[in-house]
Design a binder for these strands. Sequence first.
DNA 1: TCCCGGATCGTCTGTTTAGGACGGTGCACT
DNA 2: AGTGCACCGTCCTAAACAGACGATCCGGGA
Lengths: 181, 181
Amino acid sequence: MSNETRLTPTSYIVLGLIEAAGEATPYDLKQVVARSLGNFWSLPHAQLYAEPERLTAGGHLEERREEGGRRRRYYKLTGTGRAALREWLAEPTAEMTELRDLAILKVFFGADPQQMAAAQLPARRAKAAEYEEIERNLAGVEGAGGPLLALRAGIVHERVWVDFWAGQLEGESTEGRSGEG
Amino acid sequence: MSNETRLTPTSYIVLGLIEAAGEATPYDLKQVVARSLGNFWSLPHAQLYAEPERLTAGGHLEERREEGGRRRRYYKLTGTGRAALREWLAEPTAEMTELRDLAILKVFFGADPQQMAAAQLPARRAKAAEYEEIERNLAGVEGAGGPLLALRAGIVHERVWVDFWAGQLEGESTEGRSGEG
DNA sequence: TCCCGGATCGTCTGTTTAGGACGGTGCACT
DNA sequence: AGTGCACCGTCCTAAACAGACGATCCGGGA
């Protein structure tokens, strides 16, 4: 009864996904992650097998094992788990993620910005377009508020990257303040 | 003689910093990271002791040990190390980092965007201001090209975050496309 | 001189994440 | 019944993270 399970972002991802699903197998989670959440917060699928086990041990999940066949493990929230999730969601955070961008890291150390821009721009543009497509499909759906907001954050982000790298391509040497809309 | 030292971003950070410094101790690196690079790509200081060791074993660095006193370790690049760094810098990457933002993660799972905005906005604004201050000091310095660009990337991102969260504070329920300048 | 305190500098340990290799299971199609 | 492929799960190694802890240096006071 140590109750000493430390809850990391990974834990809350699992809790959050299972809450939304009601009951789910790790493989289900993997699918969902691949489809939506993985776009801005990815994790190795092995985690989605290991973490529910940990959470079950900590009393946040309960496990039901399929009788025959693959003997899948189905997880759902316990009261403890639901409470932990609620508490986490209710607590706003001032924490700020870093850029941690490989291309920028290289540029920082002296890589040629134009070459980097040439590699980054198409990828960023494609991503932006993909997100915008998803947004159109998601815009009507109700109850998609959270994911939709996250998506929009992703979109504005990608746009900034596109602007940034586009600016590098032109080789702007002086003031690169983009006042465009 | 396996020469099989895998080089990770952390490795290149160490190589890059040591190249810039000529010769440096882990503690020196730690200082530099805290001051500049850590703003967008942080790492635990223990890494800055462990990694040079690994790199020395792999032939990318050479180590000189202080005689008396603290017996500090001074590292500098070998030909191999310099070559590896150059090669890495010359190779543009299309890799795109994820947002991986805690606040967005919470919102995704249903946290209240306005509360989150209230927590995020001041922090983001402060960071943006801090960066802009640094930019003013750095703008004149020559040879600061790379770091300056990285800084500017950081600035535009912080601004986007500020816009994004500011939009949430107003509780815009319909179209939140900000055409502001 | 000796001791003390804080700043400087370095090491160590446990846990989580990353990333992928690899192995079973079940179904569809012959 | 056999075979191939998609589905599903486990395992392993290396790296990153986070922070506790220890040692060294230096200045100031007893």
